[in-house]
C-alpha cells in the first residue's frame, strides 16, 4: 500500500463508526455473602475499536457496577490471572477481543477451582498444592554449587526446549477444559504433567524416571489422562501439551514393564 493510500485508509478510520452494543451476561455469586445466590446479570456496553475483555470489564466496573469481581494482573497474557469461561471456553480475558465475539457474550468463572466471587477463582491455591504434590521444582544434582565459579554449561538447544515448557503461566485453562479433571478432582491436569516433563528434560535435575513415576504413575497422574486434549486446544500459550503428555506416558509405561 502506498503511503497516501494508507493515510487515506486511516483518516477514514478516524471518522465516527457505528459501534455495536454489547450485552454481557455475567455469572454473579459471592460465596462469602450468605445472602448471595448464583445468578446471571446483564450489562450493556458500547464496543470500541480494539476492545478487549480487560477494557470492557474495567469499564463496567468503573461506570456501572463497582462490586463486580474479576482478576487481572498483567493484562498482557503473561501472568495467567484472568482465565475465565468466555462463551463456555476457558481462556484469558485480557487477550480476548470483543470483535471476535458475538454481541451477546457470556462470562463465567473457571470451573474446578475454588470460587472467590463472580469471575474470580483461586487458581493459586490449587497450583501450589499441585506443585507440592509433584515436587515441581528443580532437584539439583550434588551439593550447592560455588556461585563464584562459572555456571554449569548447558546445551543451547536443550535450554530452549526447557524454556518452551517453562512458558506455562498456570492460568488453569487446561484444567478447566479437562473432562477428566471435571470428573475426578484429584487429577493432576496438563499443567502438572507439563511441569514434570519440563524437569525431566532438564539435565540439571537429578530425578530418574522411577522418581517421576512416584508422583505421576497412577490414575491421578499421567494414566488418568483420557486424551481428550481440550487442554492442548485451549492453552493460551499454545504449549505442546499433547506431545508432552504422550512423552510422559511412554516413559512411565516403560517403568511399569521394566521390573
Amino acid at each position: 500500500m502506498t503511503d497516501t493510500a494508507v493515510q487515506a485508509a486511516h483518516t477514514a478510520d478516524a471518522a465516527p463508526v457505528a459501534h455495536r452494543r454489547l450485552r454481557f451476561n455475567i455469572l454473579r455469586y459471592n460465596p462469602q455473602d450468605t445472602g448471595s445466590v448464583p445468578r446471571m446479570q446483564t450489562y450493556e456496553l458500547e464496543e470500541a475499536d480494539g476492545m478487549t475483555l480487560f477494557i470492557a470489564l474495567n469499564e463496567i466496573k468503573e461506570k456501572q457496577d463497582p462490586s463486580l469481581q474479576y482478576d487481572f494482573v498483567c493484562r498482557a497474557g503473561i501472568c495467567g490471572s484472568c482465565g475465565m469461561l468466555i462463551n463456555g471456553r476457558p481462556t484469558l480475558a485480557c487477550r480476548t477481543l470483543t470483535k471476535n465475539l458475538d454481541a451477546e457474550i457470556t462470562l463465567a468463572p473457571l470451573p474446578f477451582f475454588e470460587l472467590i466471587g463472580d469471575l474470580s477463582v483461586d487458581t493459586g491455591k490449587w497450583m501450589r498444592g499441585m506443585s507440592e504434590r509433584l515436587e515441581g521444582w528443580l532437584h539439583a544434582k550434588g551439593p550447592e554449587p560455588d556461585l563464584r565459579r562459572l555456571e554449569e554449561r548447558m546445551d543451547p538447544a536443550v535450554a530452549d526446549q526447557v524454556y518452551e515448557l517453562d512458558r506455562c503461566i498456570e492460568c488453569g485453562c487446561c484444567v478447566a477444559g479437562c473432562g477428566t479433571a471435571r470428573m475426578r478432582e484429584d487429577f493432576v491436569g496438563a499443567v502438572g504433567l507439563n511441569r514434570v516433563a519440563r524437569f525431566k528434560i532438564d539435565p540439571r535435575d537429578r530425578r530418574s524416571d522411577e522418581d517421576y513415576y512416584e508422583v505421576i504413575g497412577d490414575d491421578d497422574g499421567v494414566f488418568g489422562c483420557m486424551s481428550m486434549l481440550a487442554c492442548h486446544d485451549v492453552c493460551p500459550k499454545n504449549l505442546p501439551l499433547a506431545t508432552q503428555i504422550a512423552f510422559m506416558r511412554r516413559k512411565m509405561v516403560a517403568i511399569g514393564w521394566k521390573k
Partner: peptide, 16 residues
Amino acid sequence: MRELAAWGVPWSRIQQ
C-alpha cells in the same frame, strides 16, 4: 544469574 541458573532458570545459552 548463576544462582538462578542453579535453581533452574533456562537461561539462553551461547552457541559457538
